[in-house]
Write a protein that binds this DNA or RNA. Structure first.
Length: 234
DNA sequence: AAATTCGACAACCGCCAGATC
DNA sequence: AGATCTGGCGGTTGTCGAATT
């Protein structure tokens, strides 16, 4: 749908929009051999693309079981909530939302949810100001608890992509017992539906789920990919 | 009806961390 | 130990169609 002007980089590699033919080559190759090396993959797959471009195309568009668009209220609330806690850690947020990519979530955030979140925040701030005299300063809210966790573990948390060289021992020292208890509470939900993350979804990497596609799209996919498509009943 | 603005999102870019040589 | 390679991430851009003026 989004069409970028086709162009080539200095190495003669193609840039811009992927064609159906390129998609087919990429899917065919990965379905058969997997993605063992993104840099070399395009050469073996017969694509005049850089590895990064192939990787991105696969992860954000061609990978099986991706949902596309049509965010539910629940999903949007989840994104807003997670963003409030995690900030712009899109990949971490995406990991909590099976079928959604970090890129898609990021886009949806910037085009839809940011405004909504800001509105929510301004309302929340107003009510906080009006209630500030009533609230005990020692009583952590859901969000402050998370901030405590973040500040205590920001250099060593697996959630932090920019981890430093701090050792786990140092991190344990920094994170107070209180914070760790809060952490347990905060991330209780993290395990609540791990089967979504660690279960069939990830164990069936090459099962193409087309249940989310409009009626016309399975035909396109089966033509383009020349692979057997099926949706699973859950 | 034409021009302009806006919303959507695929894709690129540069940076970083970890792995490997 | 240092250099290089690779994968991954978040920020940003570019282009389209839709909506508005």
């Amino acid at each position: 749908m989004m069409v970028r002007t086709p162009s080539c980089d200095k190495n003669g590699l193609k840039k811009g929009t992927w064609t159906a033919e390129e998609d087919k080559k990429l899917v065919d190759y990965i379905t058969r051999y997997g993605h063992w090396n993104w840099r070399l993959l395009p050469k073996f797959a017969g694509l005049a693309r850089c590895g990064k471009s192939c990787r991105l195309r696969w992860l954000n568009y061609l990978r099986p079981n991706l949902k596309r668009g049509n965010y539910t209220e629940e999903e949007e609330e989840t994104i807003i909530k997670l963003h409030r806690r995690l900030g712009n850690r899109w990949s971490t947020i995406a990991a909590r939302m099976p079928g959604r990519t970090d890129n898609e979530i990021k886009n949806h955030w910037h085009t839809n949810l940011k405004k909504r979140s800001q509105q929510h925040n301004s309302v929340a701030t107003e009510s906080q100001i009006s209630n500030s005299n009533d609230q005990s300063p020692t009583e952590p809210t859901e969000d402050t608890a998370f901030q405590n966790f973040n500040s205590a573990t920001q250099d060593c948390s697996p959630l932090s992509q920019h981890s430093s060289s701090s050792t786990s021992t140092e991190c344990t020292t920094v994170a107070s017992t209180e914070n760790l208890l809060l952490l347990e509470d905060e991330f209780a939900f993290w395990d609540a539906d791990t089967d979504l993350v660690s279960g069939n979804f990830w164990l069936e990497p090459y099962m193409l789920d087309i249940s989310y596609l409009p009626a016309s799209e399975p035909e396109y996919f089966s033509q383009v990919f020349d692979v057997e498509l099926w949706s699973h009943d859950t």
